[in-house]
Computed example of a mutant assay.
Amino acid sequence: MANLIENKINNLEGIKEKNIETTEKISGQSLDIVKENILKLKEIFPEVFCEDKIDFERLQDVLGNYIDDKEERYRFEWYGKSQAIRMAQTPSRGTLRPFREESKNWDTTENLYIEGDNLEVLKLLQKSYQNKIKMIYIDPPYNTGNDFVYKDDYKDNLQNYFEVTGQVDDDGNKTSTNSESSGRYHTNWLNMMYPRLRLARNLLKDDGVIFISIDDNEFGNLKKVCDDIFGEDNFLGNIVRATGQTTGQDSGGLGSSFDYVLAYTKISGVDLSGLPLTEHDLKRFDNEDERGKYAYDQMRKTGSNDRREDRPNMYYSIKDPDGNDIYPIAAAGYESCWRFRKKNI
């Protein structure tokens, strides 16, 4: 009789576990990021938990000298940052719907194209792609005054939200932008960017990299907010890109011909070792030593203005590996010149 009761209890427990698993699978919410963060903290510091709550006094004791309790401290703050953090952590109830009729190679493609608000999409991707993305590139609004409509709140459907907040007219046309006359011009941009960057970081693998395009308008703010989210030690560098046109020359300052791509990684120590050599590269870099492939290059100036009298400061001797003085002498026998000054050789 005891065994029969025990078996029934076990069966009930199995049904309960199965129902819980099913409920989780069909949940209409995106990943609960707050819950995930608490579970991670519990793995690292189980001793700071009292049942399911965090004892901050114990956490302070554990962290010791790493706690900064001063009123003034170095940090990047703006109006609405706390709300932006909560927005990143609020689960989405949206759903991704497939469109077979608009797709190509549905059964065999390895690509996925998603159309929708990027904040909601980033939330929906958390369950399936958290810690799985190798590289992210984003080209956000540069905040030129008319390139995005703010602000975010998607408890209701997007179109209805735009109507309630007066961002669209009766015909559905957008009527408001983040104009420079706004008292919170940069603040609005930061509140738009912050939750999206936090969610993007969650998607990256440990050795994943994110590249973000920007121009002078918000470069400084983007660098600070990325240092805040990714950590300044994980800043890989800044790629300067020539735009092909100069703007701002009539502003009284310097004209700008460039924009930028900031590169961050999720954890420190990621090595961007470059791309493999192409067949064309291999033909040129046809020598190899313990450091890798290399090519010989011409150090003597050739073509026009290649004589010593043309560039006298480019005429000097260079010691070869055997200690001999080598001068730039052209094949025709006349004194030529080097391509580099002596201090740069």
Rank of each mutant, 00 (worst) to 15 (best):
M1G: 05
N7L: 09
K8L: 15
N11K: 12
E13P: 01
E17H: 04
E21R: 02
K25F: 15
K25I: 15
K25C: 14
E36M: 08
K42Q: 15
P46W: 07
E47W: 04
F49M: 08
C50E: 15
C50M: 14
C50T: 15
C50Y: 14
C50S: 14
Y66D: 01
D69I: 13
R73T: 15
E77M: 13
Y79K: 00
Y79S: 11
S82Y: 10
A84T: 10
I85L: 07
P91V: 14
S92D: 09
R93M: 15
G94C: 10
E102P: 05
S103I: 14
T108G: 09
G116Y: 09
D117L: 08
D117Q: 06
E120R: 01
Q130G: 03
K134W: 12
M135K: 03
Y137W: 14
P141F: 11
P141W: 11
N143A: 02
T144S: 11
V149R: 01
K151G: 07
K151M: 00
D152T: 13
D153M: 06
Y154K: 04
N157W: 14
D170M: 08
E180S: 12
S182T: 11
L190F: 04
N191D: 07
N191F: 05
P195N: 01
R196S: 02
L203A: 06
L203P: 09
D207T: 15
G208H: 08
I210V: 15
I212M: 08
S213Q: 05
D215R: 01
N217I: 15
E218D: 04
F219V: 12
G220I: 15
N221E: 11
K223H: 08
D227E: 06
I229T: 03
N238A: 10
N238S: 10
N238M: 12
I239Q: 02
R241L: 15
G248Q: 06
S251F: 07
G252T: 02
G253D: 04
S256N: 06
D259A: 07
Y260I: 11
L262T: 12
Y264M: 03
Y264N: 05
S268M: 10
V270M: 00
S273M: 12
L282E: 10
R284V: 15
R291W: 13
G292F: 03
Y296D: 04
K301T: 14
E309H: 08
R311Y: 14
P312F: 08
N313V: 12
S317P: 06
I318F: 00
D320M: 01
P321Q: 05
D322P: 05
I329P: 03
A331K: 07
A332P: 03
F340I: 12
R341K: 07
R341Q: 11
K342C: 02
